[in-house]
């Protein structure tokens, strides 16, 4: 899939800290290290999966790329420009090129606008199709492309099913003719039979328009299906990053292994034979992450050094990175 030498997006050492507490009712002040030094590269036309459990910082990472959150430090280089140095006016043309698809299309679509208006609005605002008549034609075209009918333009979001609403969300993103789409849990709110429809649609659109996806999700099977490369996050850090095949066939980080072992497989005979490796404990608070490797309190193979030494994300094999002293 990698064809261009220059990456489309380069995220370098992005850190995003939130201050909590200290307000009127706030209790003691603290710093949530939501994203703590994340780096990755995206090439045109590929899909990078970003997996992890809730609170690992995957969504905040996506929001930092979108510049919906301004990173505390680090850089987000898109088509050669560092977005973190741009002001709102300079960002406007860039925003068009980076679109987002959210988990819950219902809360991201204006309930008072028809589907047609929702898709047409940004076409007008960004002057992509300034003529109102042409805009209607373009809306029909987009609806068609995402598997909806022209008459759906007259409907309101509440009149549609979850799958149809997600198609509207995709059509709206597509209207901007973006280069990069951040897909933040785009199928996790959908029923399984509908999930597959949306995943196939995203793949078709990628092939047709040579889109680049940052695919944020917690479902490891879905991520394997759609991604070329996969990054696993834990407590604000990327702990492993590799090609899809290498990551799933030969995971190097104990957290990745635990995640894969935890996924139940729809086959009772296989499940009966399968060894149960249940990871104990819970994800520690990002307000007060453990010293050393953030995973060490839950790690089945941790040694003394893991309690004090922070492991770097190292290239263990060509293209296969892991942040583990024992990898």
């Amino acid at each position: 899939m990698i064809t261009d030498a220059a990456p489309l997006l380069e995220v370098k050492n992005v850190v995003k800290h939130f201050t909590v507490g200290g307000g009127m009712f706030g209790g003691p002040r603290g710093i949530v290290r939501a994203v703590d030094g994340v780096s990755f590269t995206l090439y045109r036309g590929e899909t990078l999966g970003l997996v992890g459990e809730s609170g690992c910082g995957k969504t905040t990472t996506g929001r930092c790329v979108l510049q919906l959150e301004r990173a505390t430090s680090g850089s987000v280089v898109f088509e050669g420009r560092d977005l973190t140095t741009l002001n709102e006016t300079e960002l406007r043309p860039v925003r068009r090129k980076i679109q987002v698809i959210f988990q819950d299309p219902y809360s991201s679509l204006n309930p008072r606008m028809t589907v047609g208006q929702i898709i047409a609005e940004p076409l007008g605002v960004h002057a992509i199709v300034p003529d109102a008549g042409r805009r209607r034609a373009r809306v029909r075209e987009l609806l068609n492309r995402v598997g909806l009918l022209a008459r759906h333009a007259e409907r309101y979001p509440h009149e549609m099913s979850g799958g149809q609403r997600q198609r509207v969300g995709i059509a709206r993103a597509l209207a901007m003719e973006p280069a990069l789409i951040i897909c933040d849990e785009p199928v996790s709110a959908l029923d399984v039979s509908i999930q597959a429809q949306i995943i196939n649609l995203l793949e078709d659109l990628q092939a047709e328009y040579r889109l680049t996806y940052l695919f944020i999700a917690h479902d490891l099977a879905v991520v394997r299906h759609i991604s070329d490369r996969v990054a696993v996050m834990y407590l604000g850090k990327i702990v492993e990053l590799a090609d899809r095949k290498a990551l799933y066939d030969d995971p190097l980080h104990p957290y990745t292994r635990a995640l894969l072992a935890a996924v139940p497989i729809p086959d009772p005979e296989l499940e009966a034979r399968r060894e149960r490796v249940v990871l104990g404990g819970e994800v520690p608070s990002p307000l007060n992450p453990p010293a050393g490797c953030v995973f060490h309190p839950r790690c089945p193979i941790a040694i003394d050094r893991c309690r004090s030494v922070i492991p770097d994300l190292r290239e263990i094999k060509p293209g296969h990175w892991a942040a583990c002293l024992l990898a």
Binding site: V192, S193, A196, I199, E203, R224, I265, P266, L270
Partner: peptide, 18 residues
């Protein structure tokens, strides 16, 4: 239903069957 979910125990399919 069984055909529409991607599975970790099987080789990756080119396309899901929704």
């Amino acid at each position: 239903l069984l055909g529409s979910v991607p599975r970790l125990d099987e080789p990756r399919r080119e396309r899901l069957a929704p």
